[in-house]
Design a protein around this nucleic acid. Structure first.
Length: 399
DNA sequence: TCTGGGGTCCTAGGACCC
DNA sequence: TCTGGGGTCCTAGGACCC
């Protein structure tokens, strides 16, 4: 047994293996040894696929039609977000028993700073193995852990550890670990930036590291350029901020809230589109009122049948959470597009510039009327809480 | 049956103000 | 007498992440 290399590596990145698929199959003996795809509904994409399905080339975010072609024998299941949330919360609780410095990234992913826990629990590597065993025993799912001195290297290490493993990257091994990787592996380099960098002949992280900063900045912009240059040398100063994802409360306040929906079939019917805008607005303002926020900028998104998309936004004089105000703004933005028979694939409504509701000063001239609508919204909220979402909805959403 | 839904951040141009 | 120069807000688009 060689010396534990993890002592100067206080950052853990824990990532559940095929989380949605693992949770969906863990209590289903009938799905053992079967390729499983989560998501993949009508006009949808794959949310997660188990490793058997991945052997056929199925990947997350892949159009479900393509996934089914690649693996027709796969069993497709819908995600159970309540169950996923419960499992996720339990897992995150395990992390918080190790250290309060837990930064939750998503349902299935978190960073831990275990600097202050080694005296009590052992080396970072030992902590990683303890967590993996606990999660496996308690939840019946596996995870992978990256152990490193920095956030970005730990993140890359966990990917390398998959599935069901641990990878430690000690400080002296950082460049030999990073530099052979494709530039697309770096956090912040997606499909477009990867293609651009490849066109410039920058294939690996090592190539990035040895490119003059100014050259890089000219190619991808000042901010991303200097960011990538630092990442390429593993010089990531980012620290861990204890954080929940806001969906579970206790997180940072949201800066925007929105909803969008792809139509079952493309449409150019203004009535259908307006009704959808109302449904989406109702959904968003309901969430805003639960969170106690109001917002000033209303943005609509319109995606056409050819998948191109445009946005239009309007900033109101004052923040609001009133359904009717936001809906009126959204429909005006839509009508101002002056679309003639353009077939739409999707519409969306988003409210930005969110502030706590109690900081909003209503102008008196508008006060009476708007307060009336605000109170109507709140009455709807109360009825929804008592009788369910189906109980109260705008008349145009009946039928 | 091509391509979800929820977000964040960056860039860039024009308006506007001092 | 060609054309300052910031800072901030608004809008639109786009890349990226999970």
């Amino acid at each position: 047994m060689s010396a534990d290399p993890s002592h100067s590596c206080p950052i853990l990145h824990v990532d559940m293996d095929a989380f949605y698929a693992s949770v969906a199959t863990r209590n289903r003996p009938d799905l053992q040894g079967v390729p499983v795809i989560v998501g993949g509904g009508y006009r949808g994409v794959v949310l997660s696929a188990n490793y058997l399905a991945r052997q056929y080339g199925v990947r997350s975010a892949m159009p479900s039609t393509r996934a089914r072609r690649l693996c027709p024998q796969a069993v497709v299941v819908a995600p159970d977000f309540e169950e996923l949330g419960r499992v996720s919360s339990s897992v995150m609780e395990n992390f918080r028993r190790v250290t309060p410095l837990v930064e939750v990234v998503s349902l299935d992913e978190a960073f831990l700073d275990v600097r202050g826990s080694t005296r009590r629990l052992g080396s970072p590597l030992e902590i990683a193995e303890q967590l993996r065993a606990t999660i496996h025993d308690e939840q019946g799912i596996t995870c992978s852990v990256g152990v490193a001195a920095s956030v970005s290297v730990a993140k890359l290490a966990s990917r390398r550890a998959k599935p069901d493993g641990v990878v430690v990257v000690p400080p002296e091994g950082i460049t030999s670990f990073l530099h052979p990787l494709d530039v697309g592996e770096l956090w912040g380099v997606g499909e477009k930036t990867q293609a651009m960098l490849h066109r410039l002949g920058l294939m690996t992280v090592g190539d990035l590291a040895h490119t003059p900063l100014r050259t890089l900045q000219r190619a991808v912009g000042a901010t991303l350029g200097s960011h990538l240059h630092e990442l390429a040398w593993g010089a990531d100063r980012r620290t861990i901020t204890p954080r929940n994802v806001s969906a579970f409360g206790g997180g940072d306040p949201d800066k925007s809230m929105g909803a969008q929906e792809t139509f079952g079939r493309d449409t150019d019917d203004r009535e259908v589109i307006a009704r959808e805008l109302l449904r989406l607005t109702t959904k968003v303002t309901g969430r805003m009122r639960v969170a106690g926020v109001a917002g000033r900028t209303v943005t609509i998104t319109v995606r056409f049948a050819d998948f191109t998309a445009i946005t239009r936004s309007r900033t109101l004089p004052e923040a609001t959470d009133v359904t009717l105000e936001i809906y009126r703004t959204a429909t005006r933005l839509y009508d101002a597009l002056g679309l003639q028979r353009a077939r739409l694939r999707l519409v969306g409504v988003r409210v930005e510039g969110l502030v706590p509701r109690e900081t909003v000063q209503r102008q008196l001239v508008l006060g009476e009327r708007e307060r009336g609508w605000s109170e109507a919204d709140r009455a709807v909220d109360r009825a929804t809480r008592r009788f369910g979402a189906a109980a109260v909805r705008p008349a145009s959403l009946l039928s």
